[in-house]
Amino acid sequence: MKEFHFHRASSVADAVAAVKGASAGKFLAGGQSLLPVLKLEMAEPSDLVSISRIKELRGVCVDGNKLLIGAVTTHAEVAASSEVKKHIPGLAALAEHIGDAQVRNRGTIGGSVAHADPAADYPAALVALGATIKTDRRAIAAEDFFTGLFETALEPDELVVAVHFPIPEKSAYAKFASHASKYALCGVMVSKTGSDVRVAVTGAGQKVFRVPEMEKALAARFEPSALDGISISADDLLSDGQASAEYRAHLVTVMAKRAVAAA
């Protein structure tokens, strides 16, 4: 790991200013994705700006028909939150199965979405639930936020402040984890609010994506069997030693059915 300057930010403005002012600054949240990258010397930031003690970034609250989760809220906090469990139980269950206990106690929702790992779980929830990402300067719809493999719409000095989730009628997440890493080889989140059904897939492709054919079938009949015979093409899916594209494509249908059954 290369040497860097460390700052502990006291406010959103302080954090953004610190990253702006550095030659190659980066926000540090739980460090669960950033520290491995630094150890492997795949990134060499000049400055790390810790945001994890900024009070306004932490916590869960309900605002009308929306659930608001602050950026530095840990996965463990989301999993344990009575508000999340009450309003979007599928999201609490998702958080409960991220990595292992240590990762959940350190890793944050803001860090997860900003990192945009193609195998991360939250992106499926954000897209399926139609969430909005609030930053220090704007609001970005989830579908516009994830732009590619480890790529987002964020500017280098832009800070995720919170994620706003509309509360659905029902939703559930089904994950097929890599045995080695516990990341998703395929994770499917389904949500239903009236006739609006969404199916979002993470882990299988370069970035989270929706499956319109499944959404249509489920809008007509929200049951696992509605997905019988619907499969997605393996063409654009990830293929690696953990799982071939063909297997991932197969898992999308299996996991989608399981998510529908659980919703």
């Binding site: 890599s178 080695a180 030693g241 953990q242």
Partner: peptide
């Protein structure tokens, strides 16, 4: 059921960390 060290045809170690080597 889980563990396998894999080299690709050029001799690169594909399972060089716990991200891919399954304990």
């Amino acid at each position: 059921l889980f563990e396998e060290c894999v080299y690709d045809e050029s001799g690169q170690l594909l399972t060089g960390s716990y991200m891919t080597y399954s304990m």
